[in-house]
Computed example of a mutant assay.
Amino acid sequence: MQRTDLLEFEPGRGRWSRDADGYEFTGIGVSGPVRFVITAEALRELVNPGGEAVDGELGVSIFEQFDHDIFHIAQREVSRRGTEHQPIILTRDDMG
Protein backbone atom coordinates (compact mmCIF):
# COMPACT_ATOMS: atom_id res chain seq x y z
CA MET A 1 0.00 0.00 0.00
CA GLN A 2 1.32 3.47 -0.84
CA ARG A 3 0.78 6.14 1.80
CA THR A 4 0.60 9.89 1.39
CA ASP A 5 0.01 12.42 4.19
CA LEU A 6 -3.71 11.78 4.57
CA LEU A 7 -4.68 8.93 2.28
CA GLU A 8 -3.48 5.42 1.56
CA PHE A 9 -3.75 4.03 -1.95
CA GLU A 10 -3.47 0.41 -2.96
CA PRO A 11 -2.08 -0.10 -6.47
CA GLY A 12 -4.09 -2.42 -8.69
CA ARG A 13 -7.40 -1.87 -6.90
CA GLY A 14 -9.13 0.41 -9.41
CA ARG A 15 -10.99 -0.19 -12.65
CA TRP A 16 -11.73 1.43 -15.98
CA SER A 17 -15.19 3.01 -16.18
CA ARG A 18 -16.67 3.41 -19.64
CA ASP A 19 -19.44 5.60 -18.16
CA ALA A 20 -16.92 7.98 -16.55
CA ASP A 21 -14.47 7.66 -19.47
CA GLY A 22 -11.69 7.23 -16.95
CA TYR A 23 -10.07 5.10 -14.30
CA GLU A 24 -11.82 4.85 -10.93
CA PHE A 25 -9.78 4.31 -7.78
CA THR A 26 -10.11 4.86 -4.04
CA GLY A 27 -7.93 6.31 -1.31
CA ILE A 28 -8.51 5.40 2.34
CA GLY A 29 -8.27 8.14 4.96
CA VAL A 30 -9.09 8.46 8.63
CA SER A 31 -12.63 9.51 7.68
CA GLY A 32 -13.14 6.59 5.30
CA PRO A 33 -12.84 6.01 1.57
CA VAL A 34 -12.38 8.83 -0.95
CA ARG A 35 -13.39 8.01 -4.51
CA PHE A 36 -11.54 9.37 -7.55
CA VAL A 37 -11.82 9.26 -11.32
CA ILE A 38 -8.89 10.25 -13.50
CA THR A 39 -10.20 11.05 -16.96
CA ALA A 40 -8.92 9.48 -20.15
CA GLU A 41 -7.78 12.94 -21.25
CA ALA A 42 -5.76 13.37 -18.04
CA LEU A 43 -4.12 9.96 -18.52
CA ARG A 44 -3.20 10.93 -22.07
CA GLU A 45 -1.49 14.07 -20.73
CA LEU A 46 0.85 11.87 -18.68
CA VAL A 47 2.26 10.08 -21.73
CA ASN A 48 1.47 12.07 -24.88
CA PRO A 49 -0.09 15.52 -24.43
CA GLY A 50 -2.39 16.24 -27.33
CA GLY A 51 -2.00 12.69 -28.65
CA GLU A 52 -4.58 10.12 -29.63
CA ALA A 53 -7.54 9.21 -27.46
CA VAL A 54 -7.08 6.74 -24.61
CA ASP A 55 -9.34 3.69 -24.47
CA GLY A 56 -9.90 1.35 -21.53
CA GLU A 57 -7.01 -1.04 -22.13
CA LEU A 58 -4.51 1.76 -22.69
CA GLY A 59 -5.96 3.75 -19.79
CA VAL A 60 -5.39 0.88 -17.36
CA SER A 61 -1.84 0.46 -18.63
CA ILE A 62 -1.07 4.18 -18.23
CA PHE A 63 -2.58 4.22 -14.74
CA GLU A 64 -0.46 1.25 -13.67
CA GLN A 65 2.66 2.87 -15.09
CA PHE A 66 2.05 6.23 -13.37
CA ASP A 67 0.09 5.22 -10.27
CA HIS A 68 2.64 6.72 -7.86
CA ASP A 69 2.39 10.13 -9.58
CA ILE A 70 -1.40 9.89 -9.82
CA PHE A 71 -1.68 9.10 -6.10
CA HIS A 72 0.35 12.21 -5.27
CA ILE A 73 -1.85 14.33 -7.55
CA ALA A 74 -4.95 12.85 -5.90
CA GLN A 75 -3.61 13.69 -2.43
CA ARG A 76 -2.82 17.24 -3.52
CA GLU A 77 -6.33 17.67 -4.86
CA VAL A 78 -7.88 16.36 -1.63
CA SER A 79 -5.83 18.90 0.30
CA ARG A 80 -6.98 21.63 -2.07
CA ARG A 81 -10.63 20.64 -2.66
CA GLY A 82 -11.64 18.57 0.34
CA THR A 83 -13.71 15.40 0.14
CA GLU A 84 -17.28 16.72 0.26
CA HIS A 85 -17.96 16.14 -3.44
CA GLN A 86 -17.10 12.64 -4.63
CA PRO A 87 -15.89 11.21 -6.79
CA ILE A 88 -13.09 13.71 -7.14
CA ILE A 89 -12.53 14.07 -10.87
CA LEU A 90 -8.89 14.49 -11.90
CA THR A 91 -8.69 16.21 -15.27
CA ARG A 92 -5.99 17.28 -17.68
CA ASP A 93 -5.72 20.60 -15.82
CA ASP A 94 -4.77 18.78 -12.59
CA MET A 95 -1.79 17.02 -14.16
CA GLY A 96 0.56 20.03 -13.88
Rank of each mutant, 00 (worst) to 15 (best):
S61F: 09
A74H: 05
I73P: 10
G51D: 06
R80M: 11
R15V: 11
A40R: 00
Y23D: 09
G27N: 00
H72Y: 10
F9C: 02
F36H: 08
Q65W: 08
G22P: 02
G50Y: 03
A20I: 04
L7N: 01
S61M: 08
I38Q: 13
M1L: 12
G12E: 02
E24F: 10
R15Y: 14
R81I: 00
G50V: 00
D5Y: 08
A20V: 05
S31G: 14
P49H: 12
R18F: 14
S79V: 06
R81H: 00
T91V: 02
E45Y: 05
R15I: 10
F25H: 06
H85N: 12
G12N: 03
W16G: 00
D69G: 07
D93Q: 04
R18H: 12
G29K: 01
L43R: 06
G32M: 01
L90T: 02
F66A: 14
G96R: 03
P87Q: 02
L58K: 09
I88Q: 00
L90A: 05
I70F: 09
T91W: 06
V30L: 11
G27F: 11
T91L: 06
L90R: 04
V78P: 05
D93L: 04
I28T: 13
F36T: 05
W16C: 02
D21T: 12
D19H: 10
A42K: 08
G96N: 06
H85Q: 07
V47K: 11
R44C: 07
L90I: 05
E52A: 15
D93P: 03
A74W: 03
R81E: 02
F66R: 13
V60N: 11
V54W: 00
V34Q: 01
D94A: 02
R80E: 14
E8A: 15
G51P: 00
G50M: 02
F9N: 11
E77T: 03
L43Y: 03
P33F: 14
F25I: 13
A42Y: 12
V30A: 15
H68C: 14
G12T: 06
I28L: 15
E45L: 03
L6A: 15
I62K: 07
T39M: 12
H68K: 07
V60H: 11
E8S: 13
I88C: 03
R76N: 10
A53M: 09
F63C: 08
V60M: 11
Q2E: 15
G56L: 08
A40W: 01
F71D: 12
N48L: 11
Q86N: 03
V47D: 15
R13V: 08
L58F: 06
M95C: 09
V54D: 09
T39R: 14
T83R: 05
G14C: 07
G22W: 02
Q75V: 03
L7E: 11
L46E: 04
N48Y: 13
G32F: 00
L6S: 15
P87N: 04
H72A: 14
R44F: 00
D93C: 04
D55Y: 06
F25V: 11
I88F: 00
E24S: 09
M95G: 10
